[in-house]
Design a protein around this nucleic acid. Structure first.
Ligand SMILES: [Mn+2]
Ligand SMILES: [Mn+2]
Ligand SMILES: [Zn+2]
Ligand SMILES: [Zn+2]
Lengths: 144, 144
DNA sequence: ATTTTGTTGCAACTGAGTTGCATTGTTGAT
DNA sequence: ATCAACAATGCAACTCAGTTGCAACAAAAT
């Protein structure tokens, strides 16, 4: 598996954000860094079986990472929040997420750009635009 | 208050969808038809104090209306789902929703169009694209 | 080493939404 | 109008993701 971040890199990110280096924090951030897509608390816990932090701890770690902008809440599904690194987002927009209604998988469209809504002249100030798409993924949309 | 739908219109919609005319169903649909924005189960219940349907009933009514496409799940906030009529949506995209991080209000941008993500040539088939925006509303974005 | 302050585990809690089941209401046919 | 078929409702109990209070603990600064 290709590590997106080394352990040192994770430590550096946390330190320069003014966050303490704890096993739980390093673990959660590493798991998110190595993940293809967004993960729920439960999925993160599964991948941290060695450290086995309490679920409260995971939620509090995630909260701290979100507050620093290191991690984003990507989307909510089945009443669970899914978290991912904030590094694949532009200033005002996160990459879109596509969920296939057939195979029920969610894909990060990291290279897709959707223009910001044109609501500036109406006085709205956009800080963050999120796009969620439902439909059929290439695998499920069999044609021919 | 301007009624978007008359009682007769609500009845007609339900009948042509093959749904039975019950007090709860007529009530919920009327409330949504008269509302400016999306409403949670709790908000709908407040506006139906006269009928006072059980919350389970409201959820089941909403489910039936969503299944028929009459009502959409607009967004999730604070772990609550907000419902609204599906009539302000185009075929493949619902209107964007803007939430102000200052006054905490959510606005339906019914007249705003955001282009669909260009992922057709990658094999994705878009059924529904949802856009959520965070930022400052005209009232809170004081300038000058 | 000591202090300061942030972090953790645990258990109890919260609250939106769901489920099973007995009862009631709507509808279409007679 | 009556009736049968089936959908809708109310209620209570439940689920389960996420939260809270607090005492024990660990990281960082001195
Ligand atoms: Mn993503
Ligand atoms: Mn809306
Ligand atoms: Zn698929
Ligand atoms: Zn505002």
């Amino acid at each position: 598996m290709i590590e997106k971040f080394t352990n040192d890199k994770v430590s550096e990110i946390l330190k320069s954000a003014g966050l303490r280096l704890t096993d739980a924090r390093v673990g959660v951030l590493s798991v998110l860094a190595e993940s293809e897509g967004a993960l729920s608390q439960e999925q993160i816990a599964e991948k941290l079986a060695d450290i086995a932090p309490n679920k409260t701890t995971i939620y509090r770690v995630l909260e701290s990472l979100v507050r620093k902008g290191i991690v984003h809440k990507a989307f909510t599904r089945e009443r669970s929040v899914y978290f991912e690194l904030g590094d694949n987002c532009s200033e005002k927009q996160c990459h879109p997420h596509f969920t296939c209604t057939s195979c029920d998988r969610t894909v990060c469209l990291t290279d897709v750009e959707v223009p910001l809504a044109g609501i500036g002249e109406k006085g709205f100030e956009i800080h963050h635009q999120k796009v969620e798409i439902q439909g059929l993924c290439p695998g499920c949309s069999v044609e021919g």
